[in-house]
């Protein structure tokens, strides 16, 4: 990916360390992960060493250094979801997708993640496919959801 792709994203932010996280958010939104040239470009733009960008990019869960699958399936692990059986949902998703939480399926279709509460606790337990929230989810619904995605 040519670094010029990031020029537009970078321009919107003043070249100071304070912008670092905001820029990474923008890159993550645009590319769904943080490509390596972007990290290098951000370091140069904010005038901080690459190592510092790396520690920020790996500290915050919002950022990913690996490309994600076509769809991201998140199982909410908030407390309300947990007491209503979220871990069973995660087990079921792992079983059906054949990959562990945090991984991407071999065919690259799904990345399975857990999220620590999205604040929709009144609809617990919750599964989020890309931006779509599915509330009051049951283990048996997982099969249908994944089938609908095919």
């Amino acid at each position: 990916m040519p670094s010029t792709d990031f020029a537009e994203l970078l321009e919107k932010h003043p070249p100071v360390e304070e912008s670092l996280i905001e820029i990474l958010h923008d890159v993550q939104l645009a590319h769904r992960y943080l490509p390596r040239p972007a990290l290098v470009a951000v370091a140069a733009h904010c005038a901080v060493p690459l190592a510092r960008v790396m520690s920020v990019a790996t500290f915050y869960k919002a950022f990913s250094l690996e490309p994600k699958g076509e769809k991201v399936l998140k199982v909410c692990m908030g407390t309300a979801c947990h007491v209503k059986g979220a871990s069973q949902l995660l087990d079921e998703a792992e079983r059906l997708l054949g990959c562990k939480c945090g991984e991407t399926t071999a065919d690259g279709r799904y990345t399975l993640e857990e999220v620590n509460c999205v604040g929709a606790c009144a609809m617990a337990p919750l599964v989020i496919e890309d931006e779509q929230y599915h509330g009051k989810f049951k283990p048996v619904d997982m099969k249908l959801l994944l089938k609908a995605g095919e």
Partner: peptide, 12 residues
Amino acid sequence: DEGDPGAFMDRS
């Protein structure tokens, strides 16, 4: 930031 899982008054 409302990090406490299970709380969402600030979001609302």
